[in-house]
Design a binder for these strands. Structure first.
Lengths: 258, 258
DNA sequence: ACGCATTTGTTCGTATGTATT
DNA sequence: TAATACATACGAACAAATGCG
């Protein structure tokens, strides 16, 4: 592609504006798409370096600046991580320094403490309607339910009820979950090749039911922050639906708007 | 500045690495700083266009690409808005099409409805300790307290308790608040020259007290989403502390993580 | 309706700086 | 020190969107 000067783009205007999309996209967007495809295909694994900008430029027959702009966007979306002098790396959940990339819970007093996990159960069931809809499963398809607690300084603070796309996580058991050190999304990545790249969350305040109250050492009816998270992989394909109940008595959910 | 080739930068390495900072910054960062200063000084008002890239390049004696990169970052931070063929504009809260830029509340059923406001009171008091600390006031300094309700489809959903930096908002009254059409941050912008560019939020689940329950038509003890927002203007100077109590029975707070 | 000027957006090429190994 | 990789900066040309005459 693009062996000719840029003015000749698009070489094949594809289907006109019929398919809804803009029938044309700038060269760097096309390159971005190609890199994305390689990421999705697993050509470069999480944590690994992708080829250098000049290599990619040669491979795609475009200038380094064009590759650079494509990578810029992928880095802005947290799919790639640039490190000057070293290279550009595929983002990963498996080697996050301190904490979970998606967890925005902070203690009221600055000190971020390490968290401990405790798995309550891990079962394979038929997806309930709501879960099936969110994960784009056919009703009756298999889903995996995981429930667990997160502890901060010995106190249970988060109760997670997690539903996973059944087909993608064949062979996931409570043992493998418990044995794995590090964030769950790291395990998904390394053991199942499923990479969470983005998540949409819906936050609400709810009252603790008997189960949640018991697990979190609270009175029934105590207010809890409900965080419903839909996690997406490449192509915005949903692979996990999770409802977390957070005890925000001594922690808060941090966010920044602009 | 930068009348010489880039290799001569920094012209004056300032204090070495003693002051903590990196003692040097790339040219485009310096340009960004200069544009920022002009924004802060009000050289271009919210909603207005800033000079074209070539004009700015001439003014700062750098290439267009360097100006471009500076503007890119300012646009990424939502301080500027680029519009192809028209120019680059100073971001504003005053002409947001549909809704409040900082409000992330969505109805459970897609339809985003227009919101109505009702102001409860607007008083000038001495800042309580917590407010003074957050707004970096001396204890005893004047602060402005505003309380109001937001209605969605006729139902009260949000109860806001707002504290403003006293000196910056002299002459703000309940009347002016009620009379102004559009978001409050728009009024701050046009009437007081105070521009909110960023906010940090802390979310918690709490129980409705008698006041909140009464105002939001809820039973006392009902769970509410508490959104504590610290709004910042240029230079990360805090100018507003706000606690919103959201009834999330039919709405949720939308967030995206990546 | 058409063309023109203006402005941002894209792409190339080249050179040099900075960080890492 | 040298090689490699990303980062910065310049310049030039053309594309696409907008608004005006």
């Amino acid at each position: 592609m693009a062996t000719l000067p840029p003015s000749t783009l698009p070489e094949f205007p594809a289907s006109p504006s019929e398919a809804g999309g803009p029938a044309f996209s700038p060269l760097y967007q096309q390159i971005k798409g190609l890199i994305l495809r390689s990421l999705q295909a697993g050509e470069w694994k999480p944590g690994e370096a992708i080829p250098s900008e000049v290599d990619l430029a040669a491979r795609f027959r475009v200038s380094q600046g064009t590759v650079r702009k494509a990578i810029d966007e992928l880095a802005a979306e947290n799919l790639l991580v640039r490190r000057q002098g070293k290279g550009t790396f595929v983002a990963t959940h498996a080697e996050e320094k301190i904490q979970y990339r998606f967890l925005r819970l902070m203690p009221d007093d600055g000190e971020a403490s390490p968290v401990e996990r405790k798995f309550i159960d891990c079962r394979r069931l038929r997806a309930p309607a709501e879960v099936a809809r969110a994960l784009e499963l056919k009703s009756g398809d298999a889903a995996l339910q995981i429930r667990r607690l997160l502890y901060f300084r010995g106190q249970p603070v988060v109760f997670d009820d997690i539903w996973l796309h059944g087909m993608l996580f064949k062979g996931l058991t409570a043992e493998r979950l418990s044995d794995y050190r590090g964030p769950m999304y790291g395990l998904f990545e390394t053991e199942f090749g499923v990479r969470m790249i983005r998540a949409e969350e819906k936050l609400r305040a709810v009252s603790a039911d008997a189960t949640a109250a018991g697990l979190l050492n609270l009175a029934e009816g105590a207010p809890l922050l409900s965080v419903e998270r839909l996690s997406l992989t490449y192509g915005d394909k949903p692979v996990e639906l999770r409802r977390g109940l957070y005890n925000t008595a001594a922690h808060f959910y941090r966010n920044e708007v602009s």
